[in-house]
Every structure is written in C-alpha cells, then in structure tokens.
Computed example of a mutant assay.
Amino acid sequence: MSATRIDMTDTPASVSDRTDPPPPPVDDDGADDGGSGGGWWSASPTWAKAFVAGGLALVLVLAGVIGGIALGRSTATTYGPAEGSIDVGFLQDMNAHHGQGVEMAVWARNNTANPEIRQLAFDIESTQTAQVGRMQGWLTLWGQPLTPPSGQYMGWMGMATPAMPGMASPEDLARLRASTGSALDVVFLQLMLRHHQGGLPMMQAAADEASVPAVRALAQSMVASQTSEAAVMTQMLAQRGAAPLPAPVDAHAGMHGMN
C-alpha cells in the first residue's frame, strides 16, 4: 500500500510561511479582558468610575456614623428614661418595696414549721429577688440611683411621700421576729398580704404608663403574680381562723396620669 503524498506546493501558502495572528492587547493595569483583574474598570467610562467610587465612600461614611452612634451610646454616662419619669420612679420605689418583701419572706422561710408557709415564702423570695436584680440592672444601666435621691417615694405618681403604702413598720417587723409557731404564720400572712395590696397601685400605674416596654411587661407580671399570691394568702388566713389586716389606704390611686 503506497503512502499518499502531500504536495506542499498545491496549497495557497506554505505552512512555514503562515503568520500567526497578533496576541490580544493587554490593559495598562496588567489584566486582560478575560481575567478577574481590572479589565472592566479600565474599559468603564469616567462617569461610571465616579459613581462606584462615590457609592463606596457613602457606605464607609454611613458605617462610621452608625459605629459612632453605637460607641457613644455604650460609653455615655446616662441614657434611657430621665430622673422623675414613671419608669425610673417605679423601679426605684419597687426596688425598696421588694426589698422589705424579700426580708419578711426569708425570715418566714427560715423560721416556720409549716411546709405550705415555707413554700409560699420561698416562692415570694425567689420571684422578688429576681425582679430586684432586673430593676437594679436597668437603673444602673441608665445611670440612675437605686432609690429616689430626695428620700421621698411615689413622686412619679403625683405626690411624694416618705413611706409607701403597705410597708411594714419597725414594730411590725419586730412582732414578726418575736412570733413562733402558728402565730408566726398568721403574722407573716397578714403583713405580706398588706404589703402586696400596698404595692399593687404602683404596679398597675407602671403597667399602664411606663414608656419602656420591658418595664411595662415587668409591672404587668408583678400585677398577675401578686394578685394570685394575695388570693392564696387570704385563703390561708381563713383556714387559720384569722382575718387580714385593714387594706392600706392609697392616696395616690388615680393620680399617676400626670405624664
């Protein structure tokens, strides 16, 4: 079988004489059109470059402004509701009110011989201690004192007073500590029921009119839990043949709408 002979002279031009096409032009920034470099940038008109650069600068400025606001807020000495507001006044007053409630609950829990009284006292102690922590945390975060600077309570409800309704007197607390057995249980129930009744108008006022949603929610939870506990204590007193103490008179009821 003979091999086919290719006559190079029969083609229009010799392969050796063929000239390769020139390479594609390279952009000045060193990246060609097919790469991931700046080919599109070099080929873009001036107005497009200015638009992209201006947009990037705007994003950086906005990021700086937002960061500055966040930093300023986190390092500011005070922010949040102002002194004398419903939110601050309620937290300051209820911090003190709860403080005495926890004190009485701890004493009853440690000294009663009745399991029901012990459980009730423990529940009140636990709930109010947790609420005190939240209230003190907010006041500290806002740069506000934990108690009213004036030493007067309930000024945020329209009339300042040196004592809040329902608070046990020093004589009441001495009577609680001196009691034993079933007498201790009765005294505790009477004092704590009156304590709940005295704090209820403040809780209702804050639940209705506080400006911070978290403060309103806390006040609403206090109203619910203490209303339930008051019903339980009333029933427990009746089971022991005892009557509640006269409910505290609240001269501030209905007076908290001034703000």
Rank of each mutant, 00 (worst) to 15 (best):
A43N: 12
T161A: 14
P244M: 07
L62A: 13
R18C: 12
M167H: 06
L120C: 00
M255K: 12
H252G: 11
T161E: 13
V187L: 02
G67A: 06
T75Q: 13
T147A: 08
V26K: 10
H195V: 05
A214R: 03
A207N: 04
D17T: 15
G34W: 12
G137N: 10
G64M: 09
A130N: 14
P244F: 08
G54H: 05
T127C: 05
Q136L: 03
A70D: 14
L146W: 01
G67M: 01
M159Q: 11
T78F: 06
G137Y: 10
P115R: 00
Q197D: 10
H196L: 04
G257I: 08
G241Y: 04
M167L: 13
L191F: 01
V102N: 10
G38Y: 13
S42T: 07
A217I: 01
Q235R: 14
A76D: 01
G55E: 02
T234M: 11
E116N: 05
P162I: 11
V249T: 05
R240C: 03
V26I: 09
L120M: 05
E103V: 01
T77I: 01
V102Y: 11
P145N: 05
G35I: 12
A108P: 00
M8P: 01
F90A: 00
S225F: 02
Q131V: 02
V249Q: 04
A242R: 11
G166Q: 08
S36N: 11
A105V: 08
D208K: 15
P162A: 09
Q197H: 07
S14H: 15
P148D: 15
T19G: 05
D20C: 06
F188Q: 05
D17K: 15
M8N: 06
L56Q: 00
T147K: 03
I6P: 01
M154L: 13
E83C: 05
L91E: 12
A205P: 01
A206D: 10
P244T: 08
P162W: 10
S211M: 09
W138M: 09
D185Q: 09
G137T: 11
P244G: 08
A214E: 03
S126A: 14
H97I: 05
A31R: 15
T161K: 11
A57Q: 14
T75L: 13
A183T: 15
A105C: 09
A121Q: 02
H195K: 06
S150H: 14
P22A: 15
A174T: 09
Q152S: 10
G143E: 11
M104T: 13
A178P: 03
P115M: 03
A108S: 06
L200Y: 12
R216I: 02
V61N: 09
A207H: 04
G39N: 12
M8T: 07
A174Y: 05
S169P: 12
L62I: 13
M157S: 01
T78Y: 07
G64K: 09
D172Q: 01
V102I: 14
A130G: 15
S14T: 07
G39V: 10
